[in-house]
Design a protein around this nucleic acid. Sequence first.
DNA 1: GTAAAAACTTGATATAGATCAAGTGTTTTG
DNA 2: CAAAACACTTGATCTATATCAAGTTTTTAC
Lengths: 192, 192
Amino acid sequence: MYEIFQKYLDEKTILTKAESELIQSFAIIKKLRKRQYLLQEGDIWKYDAFITSGCLRTYSVDEKGSEHVNSFSIEKWWTGDRESLMFQQPSRFNIDAIEDSELILFTHDNFEFLCREIPAFNNMVNTILQKSFIAAQNRIQASLSLTAEEKYLNFITKYPGFASRIPQTMIASYLGMTPETLSRIRKQTAKK
Amino acid sequence: MYEIFQKYLDEKTILTKAESELIQSFAIIKKLRKRQYLLQEGDIWKYDAFITSGCLRTYSVDEKGSEHVNSFSIEKWWTGDRESLMFQQPSRFNIDAIEDSELILFTHDNFEFLCREIPAFNNMVNTILQKSFIAAQNRIQASLSLTAEEKYLNFITKYPGFASRIPQTMIASYLGMTPETLSRIRKQTAKK
DNA sequence: GTAAAAACTTGATATAGATCAAGTGTTTTG
DNA sequence: CAAAACACTTGATCTATATCAAGTTTTTAC
């Protein structure tokens, strides 16, 4: 499924044939079965990972054993733990597959090499990072200013496909509420 | 106070004399009195802004008129609205000064020019962006998994100087709780 | 295809934190 | 330096959402 990534690159950058081939030469294909881990708490994350198909979730587990979903990532998005990667420290997160998934991994050394050698690639990466940051800011704002119901409505508007692919329990956790609360909210909003 | 920014650059990058001078040639010094706005909701943000002294807050106002503090920024940090800047759309945020402050502004065109011309500058900017993203992720995690008291303790541990410079009302808003709740938490934790 | 596991719903009750209200203390500014 | 504006505290009460519990539906896996 490298073509999906190639297509993504072609949409986001202009690369020479040699550059494209250089990128491809570093790509590691990785398949994950549903429920399989990509990263477990305590591991040091060493990759930059692009999802060609499927859906993953990043979550942490607190002292009481409750899971908190930090993010969902689907096809044509990147995933991983930037903090563990940047500081080479044990991750506080788990990343696992919600669906059978296929990813393309680059070791971080190779990825940095590509960023250095291919300015267009570097620019693409920076743009993605900026958008991720903006999305994180917006999520913080939503968590500060919206009620549980508003958070849910905001979520389904922003990510229309997600509600049907992701178990409600996980969505509830992502939104910072219990599954029961989300279930009741859905019942109410369905009426309207 | 350009020296503060120069020192910051010297710590984070290695620049030639010519590069340093190029950067300085674009710098716009801006002074803000306490309570003065740097950006108001509806404006389109056009700069990259470095704070040499003082303290600013970024906040939004919801339909009910309540303010929600998105972030605080102090000396040696950057501020602005990346979303408004990136998409050249009206900002949903206000940024104002909590203390008399002094900033260095670069118009975004100039800033992008610097990133293109000076790879070391570009790398510095990317590193900052990555750290900002990591901080945002951590904030999301905290908001999902901590109680009000834990959020406050986490905050003062992470940003030790802030509690004495910033009004409690604003800290409460930043942490997603009411000023009354924060006041009670502080009373309790003071006892221990 | 069926038993077990996982996901979702619904009701009853509890609680963390919000809201309202009235006070005190502390800056700011003319 | 006085008075207005702002910041903080404390108490009483309320409410959105959590928790606990028991049932139903859907999915998974042999």
